[in-house]
């Protein structure tokens, strides 16, 4: 019951947040000089003045700002995200086509980063000054400080150019014929490099945090008691200490969700991954306001849902956390 109440309160906040996101971004887009007519001219290699005017009139860009904003918000409230100026397709269609690719990338990267990050954190916490621990720290800091597009290109040069192990770009090889199984394997084959690239940033965060909380847990009384009772080391570490060390890691993972999505924009651009990131990138360059706002709307939605899931996950690992959030 408390949970339902939380959900309701959260939904109201979410709705207010979403409208704020739209109004704010619409205004900011409007403040910038130039508009989509210029980028359409650019895509055409030039356009005559009358054509530019016709485009502006068609999209209502010649109307006063408040009229444009009012029209847009009105449409959104009716569940209509509008038409892309640039692609002339419904924004919802454009986004829905791209969402699966981004979710696949973001979730797989997040899961990989969590599993490996936590594992490395646990390993290095057991001998904090050992060689393994230093090695883990090095790898983690390297992944964290290198820009993702650079890591991406580096992996491409290594594993696509030198070894031919992985494809360079895209999400599937359309020349491959075969059933669902073969096609899924093909997608997995394409997924690995972008996933590792995106995970490399967050892996560092998770392994560092796990290491710190694990060190803390391993010094607590209940761990000493467990050892005194004769519980084997492995069991103490993975069943007792880790369970308590995980809670802050999960909080962080939830908070990082928006960062993972924005990281995906760059990773998608490097690997031509056909997700929301590449769409966001091209739409921003094209000044395609309805598409950009649509993407922001969906991203905000994903972050809100992500945070909600984090709360749920926390309750699972730590029952002491209450219902109010």
């Amino acid at each position: 019951m408390i949970f339902l109440q939380t959900l309701l309160v959260r939904s109201v906040y979410a709705a207010i947040l979403l409208i704020a996101v739209l109004v704010l971004n619409f205004s900011m887009m409007h403040l910038a000089p130039g508009d989509v007519a210029d980028t359409i001219a650019q895509a055409n290699g030039g356009a005559d003045a009358e054509v530019l005017e016709a485009i502006r009139a068609e999209y209502g860009l010649d109307q006063p700002f408040l009229v444009q904003l009012g029209r847009y918000i009105g449409n959104v409230l009716q569940g209509n995200l509008g038409y892309s100026f640039y692609y002339r397709e419904p924004v919802t269609d454009l986004i829905l086509q791209r969402i699966p690719a981004t979710l696949l990338l973001v979730f797989s990267a997040q899961i990989i980063a969590l599993i490996i990050g936590v594992f490395l954190g646990v390993v290095s916490a057991q001998k904090p000054n050992g060689l393994t621990s230093h090695f883990v720290t090095f790898i983690a800091l390297f992944g964290y400080s290198a820009p993702v597009f650079w890591t991406g290109i580096l992996l491409l040069i290594g594993f696509s150019l030198q070894f031919h192990w992985f494809p360079v770009a895209g999400m599937r090889d359309v020349t491959i014929e075969g059933g669902l199984w073969i096609k899924s394997l093909d997608i997995l084959h394409h997924l690995i490099l972008p996933m590792v690239t995106l995970a490399s940033v967050f892996l560092a965060l998770y392994s560092r945090l796990t290491r710190a909380t694990m060190l803390e847990q391993l010094r607590t009384d209940y761990v000493r008691t467990a050892y005194a009772k004769g519980v084997p080391h492995r069991k103490v570490v993975y069943q007792h200490a880790l369970k308590n060390a995980l809670s802050p890691v999960i909080t962080l993972a939830g908070l990082q969700f928006s960062a993972v999505i924005s990281g995906a924009v760059l990773v998608e651009a490097v690997f031509s991954w056909p997700g929301l990131g590449t769409l966001a990138f091209t739409s921003i360059l094209a000044r395609d306001t309805p598409t950009i706002l649509g993407i922001l709307f969906f991203s905000a939605l994903v972050v809100i849902v992500g945070n909600l899931l984090t709360d749920l996950a926390q309750k699972l690992v730590d029952p002491r956390i209450g219902g109010k959030g």
């Binding site: 290109i153 491409l156 696509s160 770009a169 895209g170 056909p274």
Partner: peptide, 20 residues
């Protein structure tokens, strides 16, 4: 004809080089 859309020039260069 398969026309792939690859916007990153560095990625395209690698794809020419490795035969993709």
């Amino acid at each position: 004809i398969v026309m792939r859309i690859i916007t990153d020039p560095a990625a395209r260069a690698i794809a020419y080089e490795n035969g993709e």
